[in-house]
C-alpha cells in the first residue's frame, strides 16, 4: 500500500520523497472526495500548474475518485489514497483503493455516449481517457491500483 512504502514508481516517474510529491488520503464518499480534491489542488505538485492544466487535472481527478466511490466501494465505507507528483511536464498519479475490482479486471472502454440520445451518464471514463496520456490498472491482493499520467501543456 502507498501509505506503507517509502518509494513508489509511477509510469517511470520515480516518487521517492523530495519536493513536488504529495499523498492525499480520503474516505470513500462524495463529500470527502470534494475535500480531498481541494487538498490535492493546493498540494505542491498541483498548485504551480497553469489554469488550463489545473482545470484538466481537477476534472480527471474528480472522475477517477468519484468512480471509486460509486463503483469500487458502491457507497460502502473505505479509503482512497492519491499520490501526486510532477515530473518533466507530466503529472503522475497513483490512486489506490480496497473496493471491488474492475469488472473483468480491465479498464472501461470509455466510449463517448451519443449526445443526440441525451445521455445522463457514461461520461466519466470518456473524460478520464480524453485527459490522460497513459493509464494502467492492476489488482494486487485486495487493492486496486490505477496509474495515470497527464501531460501538462503550460
Amino acid at each position: 500500500m502507498l501509505a506503507d512504502t517509502g518509494a513508489v514508481s509511477v509510469m517511470g516517474c520515480s516518487a521517492s520523497g523530495g519536493a513536488g510529491f504529495a499523498l492525499v488520503t480520503m474516505p470513500a464518499d462524495s463529500e470527502s472526495v470534494r475535500a480531498g480534491l481541494d487538498r490535492a489542488l493546493r498540494s505542491s505538485p498541483l498548485r504551480g500548474l497553469g489554469a488550463d492544466d489545473r482545470d484538466r487535472a481537477e476534472i480527471l481527478l474528480a472522475e477517477v475518485l468519484n468512480n471509486i466511490v460509486e463503483h469500487a466501494y458502491r457507497g460502502g465505507k473505505g479509503e482512497i489514497r492519491l499520490l501526486l507528483r510532477m515530473e518533466s511536464g507530466r503529472l503522475c498519479l497513483v490512486i489506490e483503493d480496497e473496493g471491488e475490482a474492475m469488472p473483468g479486471g480491465h479498464l472501461p472502454a470509455g466510449t463517448l455516449p451519443d449526445a443526440a440520445c441525451l445521455p445522463e451518464g457514461g461520461f466519466g471514463w470518456f473524460l478520464i481517457r480524453a485527459l490522460a496520456s497513459e493509464i494502467a490498472y492492476a489488482r494486487r491482493g485486495r487493492t486496486n491500483r490505477l496509474d495515470v499520467t497527464m501531460t501538462c501543456e503550460q
Partner: peptide, 8 residues
Amino acid sequence: FLDSSGLG
C-alpha cells in the same frame, strides 16, 4: 467546476 455527474 462541473463533473460528469453535474453534466448528467
